[in-house]
């Protein structure tokens, strides 16, 4: 079975790229990139403002993908697998919970984001996707698990389409590289080399 890459989405350096074309660029020195991207997309989704940055980033990446590929939201309930990775897990929200804890005011609204896979839940809720998912934690230089596991999900007929990649938001830096992969003869082949190359772009 050959898995091809059918959509690319990247966020970072004050810009959003879909299929390697810049679709949004914030002015130099802009603050709160994620809010600016949200305003550009204007999804009218107030839950966005409750999310931590990791969830906001993943949410926005998938919003751009669905804007490019509207048929994804029409796919069968269980067709889409979400397979993500980052290096810092939820350490940004972890640090915030720790700060609140030190002040004696732990809050469930922060604590719920102290798990990296909450971003999977936010995306699933938004798109009504009930399929397979996994969150791996490891550096950008080691993405073999993302490739091997996504391939196995499609090969074993647990999913038809994978939205797969790296989502990191820590200390105000945002880095997202997501791919849509599926069984096809077109597009670049999905493998460790092509994913690593895309992440390094």
């Amino acid at each position: 079975m050959r898995l091809g890459i059918t959509t690319y989405c990247s966020i970072g350096h004050l810009s959003v790229k879909v299929n390697r074309k810049v679709v949004f660029r914030a002015a130099d020195g802009s603050e709160d990139l994620l809010k600016l991207i949200y305003n550009q997309l204007n999804p009218a989704y107030p839950k966005f403002f409750k999310m931590d940055d990791l969830c906001r980033l993943g949410f926005l990446g998938v919003e751009w993908i669905v804007k490019e590929r509207p048929e994804l939201s029409e796919s069968e309930d269980d067709a889409i697998a979400l397979v993500f990775q980052n290096e810092m897990s939820s350490l940004q929200s972890d640090s915030e919970h720790q700060l609140q804890l030190n002040k004696g005011v732990a809050s469930p609204a922060t604590f719920v984001y102290t798990l990296p896979n909450i971003v999977v839940g936010e995306i699933a809720i938004r798109n009504k996707w009930f399929g397979e998912s996994a969150f791996f934690v490891g550096p950008k230089s080691d993405v073999a698990m993302l490739v091997d596991y996504t391939k196995s999900l499609i090969l074993n007929r647990k999913a038809k389409i994978g939205i797969v990649g790296f989502i990191e938001s820590f200390a105000g830096d945002h880095f997202l590289r997501l791919l849509v992969v599926e069984e096809t003869n077109s597009g670049d082949e999905f493998n460790v080399v092509s994913l690593s190359k895309f992440i390094a772009e």
């Binding site: 309930d77 269980d78 979400l82 469930p108 719920v112 909450i118 999977v120 839940g121 936010e122 699933a124 809720i125 798109n127 009504k128 996707w129 009930f130 399929g131 397979e132 998912s133 996994a134």
Partner: peptide
């Protein structure tokens, strides 16, 4: 595995994800 696609901390009232 399956997702409830319902709430990030509250279990689904229909048990959707676990059922799936």
């Amino acid at each position: 595995t399956a997702n409830d696609a319902n709430h990030i901390s509250g279990p689904s009232r229909t048990g959707e994800g676990l059922y799936r």
